Amino acid sequence: MTSSLVALPMVYVGVDTHADTHHVAIEQWITSFGRVARIGVEGTGSYGVELARYLHERGHDVAEVARPNRRLRRSHGKTDTIDAYAAARRLLDKSGVTAPKLRNGATEAVRALRVARNNAVKATTAALNALRGLITTSPEILRSQLRGLSRAQLVATCAAFRPDAGRLADPVQATKLALRSLAARFREAKDQADQLERHLHQLLEQVAPNTLGVFALGPDTAAALVISIGDNPARLIGKAAFAHLCGVAPIPASSGKTVRHRLHRGGDRQANQALHTAVIVRLRYDQRTRDYVARRTTEGKTKPEIIRCLKRYLAREVFRAHRTDFRGPGSSA
C-alpha cells in the first residue's frame, strides 16, 4: 500500500476562473493522474477568491497564476481551456507564480470596511461637486444668497430650502429642490463615511495596533498597507519583497557603461499611494524628516528622489510593525 502511494505521479492543476464557471486543466508530471502537488488559480483576488479559499482550507497548495502574456495568446489562441492549461504549465516553470492572499481573516474584514468607506467618501465628493456646479448656473437670486459661504454653511443653507412643490416650472423653485436633495445626499454619505472610518479605526486598533501607530498613518492609509500584505504575511520573504510589492523598490536600469537604478513602477498602487501620503504628512509635521530632506538636498538629490527614499524607509518601518502585529496576541495567526 505504501509503495503504491509513493509511486503516484505528481499532478499540477491549472484553473481559469470566471463569474459563473471555472475551467480546470491538469498537467501530468509523468503519464497519469496522481497526487495533486499544486493548484494554480488565475484571479484569486476576484472570481477565483472563493475557490482558492476552499482549496486552501482543504490542505491544497494554492498559487496565484498570472494571466498568459499577449505573445503567448497570439501564438496559441485564446480559450478558457487554453488559459487553464497555461496556468498549469506556469506551475512547472514557476514563471508568474506567487502565493495568493488567503482572504479568510481579519485583513479581509479591514478590506471590506475600507471599500465601503472609500465609496462613501466618493459619494460625498460627487454630491458636493454636483451641488456647487448647480449653484454656478442657478438664478442670481440663489447665487447671491449662497455666494461666499463655507462648505458647512453652504450645505446647511441648501438643506434648509423649502421649495414650493406646486411651482416646479419656476427655475428658482426647481433649483431649490435639487440643491436640497444634493445637500441631503452629501450629509447622508458623510455620516456613513465617518461611521465607517470609526469602525475601521477600532478594528485596526484590535488587529494591527503597531501598524496604526506608525507616525503619519491614519485609518485609511494603514488599512491600505495591511490589505496589501494580507492575512498571510509569511508569503513575503522580507522587507525588500514588501517594498517591491508597494512599488518603492529600486530595480536595475543599467546599460553598457551606464550603471543606474530606477523606481519600480508596478506593485500595489493603493499601498504606494498610502506610503506617499504618509511621507507628505511627515514632511510637514516631522522634524527628523525635514532634517533628512535638508541634508539630502545639499548632497544634490532632487525632491522626487528624496521622497522615493523616504517611501522606501517607511515601507521597512511598516513591514516591521505589521510583523509585530501578526505575531502578537491579537493576530489571526
Rank of each mutant, 00 (worst) to 15 (best):
R290M: 10
F319Y: 15
R185V: 00
I82G: 09
D170E: 03
V115D: 04
A224E: 03
K101D: 11
P100C: 14
S150D: 00
Q206Y: 06
A19T: 15
D325G: 05
H76Y: 13
H244T: 02
R67Y: 12
V97H: 12
V279R: 03
K301Y: 00
R312H: 15
L128E: 01
D93Y: 12
V279G: 00
G105E: 02
I39D: 14
S46Y: 14
D220P: 00
A184E: 11
T289F: 09
L168R: 15
G300H: 05
L177W: 05
L203M: 14
L168P: 07
D93E: 01
R187I: 06
V13E: 01
N119D: 07
A183D: 09
L245E: 08
C309I: 05
L225C: 08
T107F: 13
Q202M: 08
G45D: 14
T221C: 00
S181M: 11
R89W: 14
T79V: 03
L314V: 07
L204D: 07
V49T: 10
A184I: 05
R288G: 06
A116L: 08
Y47V: 08
L102Y: 13
V121G: 03
A234C: 09
A223L: 05
V172P: 05
V65E: 12
R269Y: 02
S228M: 13
H264I: 01
A241I: 11
F242C: 07
L236H: 08
G59I: 05
V41T: 02
T221L: 02
S32P: 01
N210C: 04
W29S: 14
T31K: 08
E27F: 06
G96W: 13
L8A: 09
S32Y: 06
A106C: 07
R70I: 01
L91I: 07
L72N: 12
R260C: 08
A165E: 13
R288K: 06
E108Q: 10
A234P: 04
H201R: 15
H60W: 15
C309K: 12
Q192M: 05
A183K: 09
G34Q: 05
S331N: 09
R111A: 15
G328M: 08
E108H: 09
R67V: 10
F242V: 07
V97I: 15
S254P: 01
V279Y: 06
L225W: 09
P329D: 10
L179A: 04
F33D: 10
P171V: 04
A126L: 04
T44Y: 12
G238Q: 11
A106V: 09
A106K: 12
A112P: 06
L55P: 12
C309N: 13
K239N: 04
N104L: 11
E140D: 12
H18D: 09
S254I: 07
R73G: 02
A241L: 10
L8G: 08
L134Q: 13
H322N: 06
R89H: 15
I135S: 05
R67K: 14
K301E: 00
K101P: 13
I82W: 13
L212G: 07
S32H: 08
V49D: 08
G218E: 12
R90I: 03
L55T: 11
R320K: 10
K78G: 06
V49M: 10
Q145H: 03
R38T: 15
R269L: 03
R58Y: 13
S331Q: 11
Y313H: 13
A123Q: 01
D291H: 02
L146N: 00
A253P: 02
A234S: 15
I229D: 11
V281M: 05
R132K: 07
A37W: 14
